[in-house]
């Protein structure tokens, strides 16, 4: 752990990434206290008011949108929604990925073939296309967007767990437990799984950024979170028609997406380098 931290803190990018991740987690948790206004409150007398530095007023620091809602408050609540989506996507795909990966690696044979074939199919479809198809079946909405985005995050987890299981299975501690008569489930979840934590943590961090990005893309296409929810992708798609007259409505939500995704990518890269120096690029 100490060695890990000393590796990690030497990596400037990783520390910035961690700071960004913590910052947005903080904003997401304390959104109701941080937001100066109610994100759905409409101020009809202040339509598309520019930000403070662009001739706005201090009452609406980042300006207002096309129906007169405070942009800053909507962006803050947007952090809450995106972080929540990212969280659920990672948890859902992590659980399914771990279980399928353990089964495929541990039992081998036709179970392995079946699971890995399904993963091949999931990976043959481009992420957004798969999500669009899933949303077409189960309908748009925030919950369905989470399911759709999770679906294509699963193969990454499955492959990592399976590869680790294949390597660990041959080791003596597994054979020892088997000869003691430990159940397969005990060996898989309590003996082998803790030994593949490092790559899993890295994948989970990077999965967070993919989840946020893809959910925002779905929202942008009108297939994810629905208006008037202050989700960044949805806000962007609303703002498209005002790109000429009110460019801040376009730039700000996208900037938020970029910064969060960048934060998780920096953090994930740093974790990978610190946890497993062999993978260092």
């Amino acid at each position: 752990m100490k060695e890990f931290w000393s590796h990690f803190k030497d990596n400037k990018g990783a520390v910035i990434g961690l700071a960004l991740v913590l910052l947005f987690t903080f904003i997401a948790i304390f959104a109701p206290f941080l937001a100066p206004k109610d994100p759905s409150q409409i101020y009809p007398e202040y339509l598309r008011l520019p930000p403070l530095w662009d001739g706005g007023i201090s009452h609406f620091v980042l300006g207002t949108d096309d129906v007169g809602r405070d942009l800053l408050s909507r962006l803050i609540y947007g952090a809450r929604i995106s972080m929540m989506i990212g969280f659920f996507v990672v948890v859902l795909s992590l659980i399914i990925g771990v279980v399928t990966g353990l089964f495929a690696g541990y039992y081998g044979g036709w179970i392995d073939t079946l699971i890995m074939r399904i993963m091949d199919i999931l990976m043959a479809l481009p992420s957004i296309l798969l999500a669009i198809v899933v949303v077409a079946v189960i309908g748009p909405g925030i919950k369905n967007a989470i399911i759709a985005v999770s679906l294509f995050s699963i193969p990454g987890f499955t492959r990592i767990v399976r590869a680790s299981v294949l390597a660990e299975k041959k080791k003596q501690y597994v054979m020892a437990s088997q000869s003691f008569g430990a159940s397969s489930y005990r060996i898989m979840f309590l003996e082998i799984l803790p030994n593949c934590m490092a790559p899993l943590i890295v994948q989970a961090t990077l999965g967070f950024s993919d989840g946020i990005l893809n959910a925002a893309a779905l929202g942008f296409l009108g297939l994810g979170t629905q208006p008037p929810t202050p989700e960044w992708g949805v806000m962007l798609s609303d703002a498209r028609s005002f790109i000429e007259s009110s460019p801040w409505m376009v730039t700000l939500p996208g900037l938020c997406i970029l910064i969060v995704v960048l934060g998780f990518n920096l953090f994930g890269d740093g974790l990978r380098d610190a946890l497993d120096p062999r993978l260092k690029r």
């Binding site: 376009v250 997406i257 970029l258």
Partner: peptide, 18 residues
């Protein structure tokens, strides 16, 4: 390149238009 890799391209396209 890390920024480019993290880019939400549906936003990037709009920024380029802008």
């Amino acid at each position: 390149s890390l920024i480019g890799y993290s880019m939400p391209i549906f936003w990037w396209g709009l920024v380029l238009i802008l």
